[in-house]
């Protein structure tokens, strides 16, 4: 990031209650803050229930963030559960050429055009490291690799701080998960199979 360039990114997370969308948003904002940016994270306010659709938002900016409105035109969306594609307006407002990170083996057959789709089996990767099919930190690593908006090391630091209360094993597992998510997408980027967001 060039130092005097104004940067402003909005990211929307879609998940189901229990998948850690709200935590993922907080971790991303914490990582961006570690990187020296101003950041803001908040859930779509509502009554949380396990399995119900959940949204969370992040703003990352080089200038102080004053507004407390919801995010309507994100630069990227992270979809933690592919079934939400059928039931929730997950692409609503996404900017042209915006990045879609989807927790799935492959791009859906009827993927909307005009966006950059990246699919990865985040639940499987998460399960391998964490012991439960949690996609959230895997997708954060993927987002870092796909956008360059936060550094991997900042995400690792955020996980270390924010999840410290959950014990060393959980922190370590999530750091492995975020790294594998990062490497997965970094490889796609290296193979020029995803354009890096600017």
């Amino acid at each position: 990031m060039k130092s005097n360039e104004i940067c402003f990114h909005e990211i929307r997370f879609h998940g189901r209650g229990g998948q850690g969308a709200v935590s993922a948003a907080a971790l991303l904002a914490l990582a961006a803050f570690e990187d020296g940016f101003e950041s803001q994270a908040f859930p779509k306010f509502g009554s949380e229930r396990r399995g119900a659709p959940v949204e969370a938002y992040v703003r990352i900016s080089s200038a102080p963030i004053r507004a407390h409105n919801q995010v309507y035109a994100p630069d990227a969306v992270v979809i933690q559960d592919a079934s939400l594609l059928r039931t929730e307006p997950v692409l609503q407002g996404l900017k042209p050429n915006g990045l879609i990170l989807l927790n799935a083996d492959e791009k859906p057959v009827q993927a909307s055009s005009g966006f950059r789709w990246v699919s990865l089996p985040a639940s499987q990767i998460g399960e391998r490291h964490i012991g439960r099919p949690l996609p959230n930190t895997v997708l954060l690593g993927a987002l870092a690799a796909g956008t360059g908006w936060v550094k991997l090391v900042a995400l690792e630091q955020a996980i270390g701080n924010h999840l410290a209360g959950k014990g060393e094993a959980i922190v370590k597992a999530n750091i492995e998960a975020v790294r594998e998510g990062y490497q997965f997408v970094a490889q796609l980027v290296a193979q020029q199979r995803v354009e890096v967001a600017s």
């Binding site: 914490l30 101003e38 407390h68």
Partner: peptide, 9 residues
């Protein structure tokens, strides 16, 4: 929510 549930610096 707008403040109580929002992470900010």
């Amino acid at each position: 929510f707008l403040l109580t549930h929002t992470f900010e610096p």
